[in-house]
Structure formats: C-alpha cells, structure tokens
C-alpha cells in the first residue's frame, strides 16, 4: 500500500519541484525587496523625525498585529476593487515584502539604537555628514547586533510564505493540497512538504547560529 503510494508520489515530482521553485522565488524576491525596504524604514525611524518615526511605527504595528492571511486577502481582493489589477504572484510578493519590511525595520532600528551615543558624537565632531555617519559609523556597528536576528527572521518569513497558497499560488504547501487529493495519505505528503521547507530553512538556521557565535568573538565588522 505504502509502496504504491510512494510510486504515485514519485510521479508528482515535477509538480513538487514547481512548488518548491515557487516558494523559493516568492521568498527570495520578497526577502530581497523587504530587506532593502526594511533597512530604509529602520534608518528613517531613527533619523530623528518624530513624524516619520510614528508614521512608520503605526504601519509596523498594524502589520504585526494582523494575521498575514488577512493581509494577503486584503491585497488580493480589495486592490482589484480599486482598479488595481493584480495576479496572484504579484499580490503574494507585495504582501510578503511588506511583512518582511515591517519585521526587518524593527530589527534594524533596534540595532541602530544599540550603537552608543558617543559613536555618533565622535562622527559628528569630525564633520561627517548624516549619511556618512550612518554609512561609516552607525550601520556597521548596528549590523553586528542585527545580523543574527535578521537571518532568524528570514526563516520565519519563508515559512510564512506558505500562506500564499490561499490565493491559489502553486507553492510547496499548495502542491501538498493538490497531491493529497490523488494520494490519500496526508501524513506522508505533508511530511515531504515539511522536508522541503526544512531543506530551504536549515542552511539559514545554521548561518544564524554561526553569526551569533562570531558576534561574541569579533571586534570588528561582521564578515560572512
């Protein structure tokens, strides 16, 4: 029986690969965009403008305080009502990028705030401009603090990407749902889906652990 099911599963491997590819593409693009946006938000939050700080803070709280599924539905079903036509993939990218940016913003802002004031004062006193202070003095030190939680956050976001199956994207999770209709062994099918996610996330988990260990030893900038 199991043998028969396994054989039948083997037959669906092209679909499984497509699902894995979709999960990786969606997460990869969203994490890159989300990181860029998250850094920009994090820097803006700590730039000294109270208005910007509270505006970004409110948005971050809003996103962190609502389920990702609800956010995806809002983007996928509400935006077209307003005349913005979206395919599921774009909607997924927008939703996941936004979620990533919000979490990464908080990690980056916390890292920036952890840099001692004396560092900023020293940079200020030697005449560095605001951007130079950020780029040369503050961010490299903030990164030391931020990098391990940042990589940890990536793992969480990759797993959150499974929610996009709800709007019909054929990612790893949805492939599981499709296959289980043909091969009625949920345990087996979703164990394999789980292994798929783990294969993507485990290297990142190892990287985060390695970075954390380096952090305690290094005096300088973090080198990957």
């Amino acid at each position: 029986m199991i043998w028969f099911q396994l054989q039948s599963l083997m037959g669906s491997y092209p679909l499984a690969l497509r699902g894995l590819g979709m999960t990786i593409a969606l997460s990869g693009i969203s994490l890159v965009l989300g990181t860029i946006l998250g850094f920009a938000f994090g820097v803006l939050r700590t730039s000294g403008s109270r208005l910007l700080d509270s505006a970004i803070g409110l948005w971050v709280d809003l996103i962190r305080g609502t389920p990702f599924l609800v956010q995806i539905f809002l983007i996928f079903f509400i935006l077209p009502e307003l005349g913005v036509e979206l395919d599921a993939f774009t909607a997924g990218i927008i939703a996941l990028t936004n979620l990533a940016a919000c979490f990464i913003c908080e990690i980056v802002a916390a890292g920036i705030r952890s840099v001692p004031t004396g560092q900023v004062e020293a940079a200020l006193a030697s005449g560095l401009s605001q951007w130079q202070r950020m780029r040369q003095v503050v961010l490299p030190q903030a990164m030391r603090v931020s990098l391990p939680p940042l990589v940890g956050q990536y793992v969480l976001l990759i797993k959150d990407s499974s929610v996009v199956s709800a709007i019909g994207l054929t990612d790893l999770t949805r492939v599981g749902w499709l296959v289980v209709q043909r091969v009625p062994n949920g345990l087996l099918v979703f164990a394999i889906v789980g292994i798929g996610y783990f294969a993507v996330c485990y290297p990142l988990i190892l990287l985060a652990r390695r970075l954390e260990r380096r952090m305690s030893a290094a005096h300088g900038e973090v080198q990957l």
Binding site: P116, G118, Q119, E121, A122, A123, A125, S126, G127, L128, S129, Q132, Q136, V137, P140, Q141, R144, H219, G220, E221
Partner: peptide, 26 residues
Amino acid sequence: GFVFQAFNLYPHKTALENVTLAPIHV
C-alpha cells in the same frame, strides 16, 4: 578637533582607519 573622555574610537575600524576616515570622506 574634539577628544572625548571615553575616547569613542570606532570599534569596527583599525587605528589607521579611525584616523583616516574623516580626512578621506570629509
């Protein structure tokens, strides 16, 4: 020039990088 009680050297830069940062960038 401003010399601080707590030195405030940039910990992620070497001595030489500390003294050349502002001359190069400013």
